[in-house]
Nucleic acid binder design. Structure first.
Lengths: 357, 357
DNA sequence: TCCGGATACTAAAACGGTTTAGCTAAATTT
DNA sequence: AAATTTAGCTAAACCGTTTTAGTATCCGGA
């Protein structure tokens, strides 16, 4: 008797144990009494091409559904060489710009059956390389990269191997790698024109020591704007803070910059992140915008819309960037389409005028 | 002669073509004149255990480095059943809270050799299920999920299959699935105590129609707080907006709520997102904080630190949540450690008092 | 009657690793 | 000297698919 009891309690457990194992295409084949190839053809929509009969096709599909079959993507990847994964390498996963970017890219990629693997470099060269290696091991099908310094060589190597790559928000001079960026020079130029038009003359520029093309361009545009307006001693109107400094420290530097000489009536922040810190310190100093100081920033943010009178910004068309980038990548992934002439895209930013100027 | 020319130009191209192909463990084995098993043992640090001689070990490692061998993770996954990937399912990839969360989780997971696959449900049930299926196909080793409605059953199924799962910022009643949440009830309670202490009596509550435990708890805490203070007609002090309404619409509702009756001297926003909209409409209405209206919000944000006098908030310990969650998951992934008693963690939020109250 | 061509499937190789179970020769024990 | 152990390595199965190259059966035509 105890035996019987034992068995009734043990058998279901055993069954559950069996059920736990994922069912494979072989299980389906066995159940249907056919070969795995047949099942594979049917489930991949090649039944007709392979002349599998209607009845069998229906039967197998039915069994598959009933047993809850889910193909093992890893095995598929190994066999086909396609992982259906795209690596997205951004500067910082928690940044505002990249959050928006990611959301759009994700939904867009999904339409074509691709998953995004999301990685952030935090602007460390070594980390960027490690990530690239990892992604390569994972056999991702394509790469979307906001290129940091030190990654050039490795990225070029990818391109040489004909791996689909798209650069976002940065590019390499004299290269054929597709990219989509915003016209940084034009953006700052627009901002400066706006400031001059509003009558501001003593303009300070806060930037960061990241060695990136887009940062360099923004700075160049600022410098040129001053030159064109016959303003001298440009160097002392530029503050370059260190990327890895703590926020407190940067704020202190900005404060010193504002109160120091030459005195200024407007300040231009070259990035989002700097702008937020700027807003914070300006608020702490009790300066009125734009009365005591006008402010403008490259790249938009919730904070800029809401703070005080609103901060005038040069806004990047994030949607457009994301959509264009994924477009360029899918182009390469699904080779079908025409080569597509223009693989290097420069989009126009837009000036959003708010109360701070 | 033309032939020679042809060959010098063709051979390098051919070589490049050869080089393009990723080198496999077989290539290494051939080069070293040993079997693939030997190479595998050596590269996986099992040389000693398998009694491979020091010299051979060194030689193979050397060749591997020289040839730039990178193992194919897909093949490894298929064989070992371990993908070294963790699926992170969040509500919205561009949300502030999740951005921070992701950053910490990513760096933490990396230490143990795991990659994060990042997905967002946008609070749509079907999308959540699709993602779960996708991740399962990808053979991810573990799941971190902010559970949306409609995912319960599927998540339970995962747990039953002994898949490592950790829930974040939500949980299922009466279940044993590990989770880490913040004490939502306590948080709102603290906020209400603070408001009452400051002398506010007519408090409005803005919440959203998401069917989530944490939202329900926040509302319950509000209701209870009013009850405890003998305040009646609680219903008309609560505004529940629809999650999928456009921002404009929600702001209008908030405006009506503020200007409507019963009049209020303080307003409590139950989420970050609502709070930002609140700030925006309050600014537009020209109300002074806290003069015309006091404001408090559940969950912090850059905006709240910087807007006007600063918004008082109930801050979630994001760092702690992330670290604890990844901890619970790794616990399950690397079964070594002790079972670890407490698998369901409730963390305490903290009140950050700013100018708005 | 035999051939050619559909028709309806299947066997087996391949993808690139890991791992179990040996195998051989030398060293050690009995 | 035979038996056993050890050192150093390898053969081959296996993970779960896809896909190429068949095979077997039937049918119509010459």
């Amino acid at each position: 008797m105890p035996f019987v009891l034992l068995r009734v309690s043990v058998v279901p457990v055993f069954l559950i144990f069996i059920l736990m194992k994922r069912i494979s295409i072989r299980d389906l084949a066995k159940k249907a009494g056919v070969s795995t190839s047949t099942v594979s053809f049917i489930l991949n929509g090649k039944a007709e091409k392979m002349r599998i009969s209607k009845e069998l096709t229906a039967k197998v599909k039915d069994i598959s559904k009933k047993m809850g079959y889910v193909p093992n993507q890893v095995a598929v990847s190994l066999r086909t060489g396609q992982s259906k994964q795209i690596g997205l390498i951004v500067e910082s996963i928690s940044g505002h710009f990249f959050g928006l970017l990611a959301r759009i890219i994700e939904t867009e990629a999904e339409k074509y059956g691709y998953r995004i693997i999301y990685c952030s470099t935090e602007n460390k060269a070594q980390q960027g390389l490690d990530i690239l290696k990892m992604l390569s091991q994972q056999q991702v099908d394509g790469y979307m990269i906001t290129p940091a310094k030190g990654m050039e060589e490795e990225i070029r190597r990818l391109a040489e191997r004909k791996k689909p790559v798209v650069l976002i928000d940065g590019f390499f001079e004299g290269d054929t790698i597709p990219y989509v960026i915003v016209d940084n020079y034009k953006g700052v130029e627009m901002g400066m024109k706006h400031l001059f038009a509003k009558g501001y003359k003593d303009i300070g520029f806060v930037t960061v020591d990241l060695d990136l093309v887009q940062i360099a361009e923004r700075k160049a545009a600022f410098t040129d704007a001053l030159k064109n307006n016959k303003i001298r001693k440009i160097g002392e109107r530029i503050l370059t803070v260190s990327y890895h400094s703590p926020a407190e420290n940067i704020m202190q530097q900005i404060k010193d910059f504002i109160t120091g000489r030459p005195k200024m009536d407007a300040i231009f922040f070259s990035t989002n992140y700097l702008g937020v810190l700027g807003v914070e310190i300006i608020a702490k100093m009790g300066l009125a915008l734009p009365g005591d100081l006008a402010m403008i920033c490259f790249d938009d943010q919730d904070v800029f819309r809401l703070f005080g009178p609103g901060i005038t910004v040069i806004k990047q068309p994030v949607d457009e960037i994301a959509r264009k980038a994924i477009d360029l990548l899918l182009h390469q992934l699904e080779k079908k389409k025409s080569p597509g002439r223009l693989q290097q895209v420069k989009l126009q930013p837009v000036l959003v005028e708010r109360g701070s100027t």
